[in-house]
Simulated assay, not measured.
Amino acid sequence: MRPETRALVLHLGVIAGLAALYPLLPTYHQGNLTRILVLAIYATGYNVLFGYTGLLSLGHAMFFGAGMYGLGLPMQHLGLPALPAFVLGTACAATLAAAVAALALRTAGVAFMIVTLMFSQAAFLTILYFTTWTRGEEGFVLARGARRIAGLDFSTPDVRFWTAFALFATALLLTLWMARSRFGHVLVAIRENEERTRMLGYDVQSHKFRAVVISGAFAGASGAAYGLFFGYVGATFASVQYSIFPLLWVLLGGAGTILGPLVGTAFMFYLINWAQDLTSAYMLVAGVVLVLLTLFARAGIVGEIRKRWLGWLP
């Protein structure tokens, strides 16, 4: 079997496994799986930029927040239906990503990281400034009756999961297709040696710009879905910690791997839950585990599996 076919079969198997796992889980873990899938879309988008293109951003919370507020504000203040609000939220994040990319990509390396962090902080402070509409750190709750699309009520657990599942499966397969495409190969070439890629005649800036926009759109779709599914929109989701989380998820799961974001998100989610049961200093316990994993599995969980046993994994 060709490596491309193996990869497709594996990823379709993972998607089928998630669908089969959900009915077997207790109610609590069913809810957790839904959250993990929504956040894994966010991590998948971040992986496009960091894992495949080699651009380290500390500002992705602004795209997640743009998707969430792009959905939530029109629903709350204008009575916009959920479906067009979801599309609008994703479009807001992609548009913001394009604007940020046009400016931030004039820099490189550490400067790019700092510029994205500054833009993200500006977006966070903007949310706090317009408290009259955004309710600042307190946030606001979306009415249950408004969270419906084509008769589907997103306040019910099963509808939430299967919609999150469909969105994640789409994101996963799109990323797999992109990684195998010419565009994906150029992104990897930029990550490995940007100057050589430019010398070969590729438009490096154009490819990096598109990578930022795609990554921002994924993050925005995740933020919009989170607000729609769980009915809450708040400034916390646009803060610095939500820029650090996707970086940790991708590093833990394996940067530059298709399944790494899902594995890293699930690992981090349950690590923090487990540590909370042990002590109030749960972030200290989680931090120690993360440091050990980073030291002894530098390529991440899926990255180590690829390096040691399954070299054909994308």
Rank of each mutant, 00 (worst) to 15 (best):
residue 19 A to G: 03
residue 152 L to K: 06
residue 195 E to A: 08
residue 135 R to K: 05
residue 257 T to A: 07
residue 97 A to C: 07
residue 118 M to W: 08
residue 266 A to S: 06
residue 13 G to K: 08
residue 133 W to K: 09
residue 226 Y to R: 09
residue 247 L to M: 01
residue 82 A to Q: 13
residue 270 Y to D: 07
residue 305 I to S: 01
residue 262 L to S: 09
residue 309 W to L: 11
residue 86 F to G: 09
residue 25 L to K: 07
residue 243 S to F: 01
residue 13 G to C: 02
residue 225 A to Y: 06
residue 123 A to D: 07
residue 305 I to P: 04
residue 17 G to Y: 12
residue 303 G to W: 03
residue 90 T to K: 14
residue 10 L to W: 00
residue 263 V to K: 07
residue 307 K to D: 12
residue 204 V to D: 05
residue 41 I to K: 04
residue 84 P to G: 00
residue 229 F to L: 15
residue 11 H to Y: 15
residue 210 R to C: 08
residue 245 F to W: 01
residue 15 I to T: 11
residue 233 V to P: 09
residue 101 A to T: 13
residue 119 F to Y: 06
residue 77 H to K: 03
residue 5 T to F: 05
residue 210 R to E: 06
residue 207 H to D: 05
residue 108 A to D: 00
residue 119 F to G: 06
residue 139 G to C: 15
residue 241 Q to R: 11
residue 287 G to E: 07
residue 65 G to K: 06
residue 188 V to T: 01
residue 120 S to H: 08
residue 301 I to N: 00
residue 159 V to A: 07
residue 186 V to I: 12
residue 128 L to M: 04
residue 99 A to D: 02
residue 143 A to V: 04
residue 38 V to D: 09
residue 153 D to A: 09
residue 5 T to V: 15
residue 177 W to N: 15
residue 118 M to R: 00
residue 80 L to W: 06
residue 189 A to P: 01
residue 108 A to S: 13
residue 29 H to P: 07
residue 49 L to D: 14
residue 59 G to E: 00
residue 168 F to P: 06
residue 186 V to Y: 04
residue 105 L to H: 00
residue 208 K to H: 11
residue 173 L to A: 13
residue 272 I to G: 04
residue 70 G to E: 00
